[in-house]
């Protein structure tokens, strides 16, 4: 029994010693509380405040500086991105559809592979695929307003003009799917919001991957159009490979938007 107590005392002392070391010796550092979504009062926000918000997101929630910093250099530095954007837009390797620096920056956040700065691509892809994570969903999960704020911040950082106003209206709460924006109000807006122009020639945009939709209303009826959006592979237009168009537009759009889109297409004659 004596041995039993000795062993117990020895073991407990060891544990207590470890605990004292971890609680008394080691400096207490509190992990940051979970990040909260910024409660934005956009109505009252001035542009400098909006830029400051962008800076905060850039250094904080957006976690951009983990890679875009001069020490680790895992990603290009962004101080002069606004200046360099114009060169990038002219670069033959550029694959995106931005027309000005503001759009270029936003695009590079949403579709980082549109232009990969030489030397920063995923190894083995010859700088065609960017290693940047999705920032509008997942761990980072910026909403549209936050993305815009970062764009404003980066533009200002490079000394460029900011071509847009502070977005008014409340930001939409974070959605699981990561696509978050106010519902579109016209058919053309729906087209823009879901990036139809990336593939189709539609509403002033000139995508070339999918069929030309500028006169689709003349050829197809409403029922066909409805099906073509919800189940794109049900009918394949001649001369185009099937299986290209995403099948989830039906889930992403609100019922109202879907209705607007179909009406818009049906009227395109």
């Amino acid at each position: 029994m004596k041995i039993f107590f000795r062993v117990i005392v020895f073991s407990v002392l060891t544990i207590v010693l470890y605990m004292l070391f971890a609680t008394q010796y080691i400096p207490p550092i509190n992990p940051a509380p979970p990040p909260k979504e910024e409660a934005l009062n956009l109505g009252a926000m001035t542009m400098p405040q909006f830029i400051a918000l962008g800076e905060k997101i850039f250094n904080g929630k957006g976690t951009c500086t983990l890679c875009h910093n001069p020490v680790v250099k895992r990603a290009p530095l962004l101080e002069s991105v606004a200046v360099r954007a114009n060169e990038r837009l002219k670069d033959p390797r550029y694959k995106g559809k931005a027309k000005n620096p503001a759009d270029y920056i936003e695009e590079s956040m949403r579709e980082p592979s549109a232009y990969v700065v030489a030397g920063f691509g995923v190894t083995g892809t010859n700088d065609t695929v960017s290693p940047m994570p999705v920032i509008t969903a997942g761990a980072i999960g910026l909403n549209d307003v936050e993305v815009k704020a970062v764009v404003a911040y980066l533009l200002q950082l490079g000394g460029a003009e900011i071509p847009f106003e502070v977005p008014r209206g409340q930001p939409v709460a974070e959605k699981k799917e990561g696509q978050a924006a106010a519902p579109a109000k016209t058919g053309a807006e729906v087209v823009k919001k879901y990036g139809c122009g990336g593939c189709h020639k539609i509403a002033g945009e000139a995508g070339a991957i999918g069929p030309d939709l500028t006169k689709i209303g003349a050829k197809r009826n409403v029922e066909y159009l409805r099906r073509a959006v919800l189940d794109p592979d049900a009918d394949i237009a001649q001369g185009f490979p099937g299986g290209m168009m995403p099948k989830d537009f039906g889930d992403k759009m609100t019922a109202g938007e879907f209705k607007l889109l179909v009406e818009f297409l049906a009227k395109s004659k």
Binding site: N69, P70, K73, L77, E79, G158, G159
Partner: peptide, 8 residues
């Protein structure tokens, strides 16, 4: 009145 890039 300008930005300096400390990295470079």
């Amino acid at each position: 009145n300008k930005s300096f890039n400390i990295g470079t």
